[in-house]
Computed example of a mutant assay.
Amino acid sequence: MREAHRVKNGCHQWNKLPEGYVNLQDGDRIQVGDVIRIHPEYFSEYINGLLIDTYCSNVNIWYRKQVTH
């Protein structure tokens, strides 16, 4: 991806993982707003569809914005 950040079809996409995101573990459930690494330099936010509430596996690398209190 050439831009550092863009919005496509309502999803945020980046060429590097934004700050504040942590790696999900095998077995975590995918939620709205989670980010998937599609390519080493291409990350996409996931906002809708069939993957919501399914379990992560080690096949794909998912991230979630870390909640700070």
Rank of each mutant, 00 (worst) to 15 (best):
V35M: 04
Y42I: 01
A4M: 13
C11V: 03
C11S: 12
K65N: 03
H12K: 14
C11N: 14
H12W: 03
I47R: 12
R64N: 02
C11F: 05
G27P: 01
I36C: 08
I38L: 13
G10D: 12
M1N: 09
Q66D: 04
V35H: 00
R2S: 07
L24M: 15
I52D: 04
A4C: 06
Q25M: 12
I52T: 06
C11H: 12
K65W: 01
I52L: 15
Q66V: 02
E3H: 12
G49S: 11
K65C: 05
D34E: 12
W14K: 07
Q13P: 04
N9C: 06
V22P: 00
Y46G: 08
Y21S: 09
N23D: 07
Y46W: 10
V7Y: 04
S44M: 15
Q25K: 13
S44E: 13
D26S: 11
N15D: 15
N23F: 14
C56I: 01
R6I: 06
Y42R: 08
L51V: 12
N58L: 14
Y21Q: 02
V67T: 09
E45H: 05
W62F: 08
H5K: 09
H69M: 06
I47W: 05
N48C: 13
V67F: 02
K8Q: 14
C56G: 01
G27Y: 11
T54N: 05
C56D: 00
S57W: 02
V32T: 10
V22F: 13
Q31M: 11
E3W: 11
D34L: 02
Y42F: 09
V35P: 00
C56M: 03
I30S: 00
A4S: 11
H39Q: 12
E3Y: 10
N58R: 11
L24Q: 04
H5Q: 11
E45L: 03
Q31W: 02
W62P: 00
Q13R: 14
K8C: 05
N23W: 14
N9I: 08
V32G: 06
I52E: 05
V35T: 08
Q31E: 11
V22D: 08
V35Q: 00
I30N: 00
H12N: 15
N15C: 08
Y63H: 13
Y63K: 01
E41G: 15
Q66W: 03
K16D: 06
T68A: 03
Q25P: 02
Y55R: 13
D26Q: 07
S44G: 07
L51M: 09
Y63I: 03
D26T: 14
D28V: 13
Q31T: 03
K16R: 12
C11I: 03
L51G: 10
H39I: 13
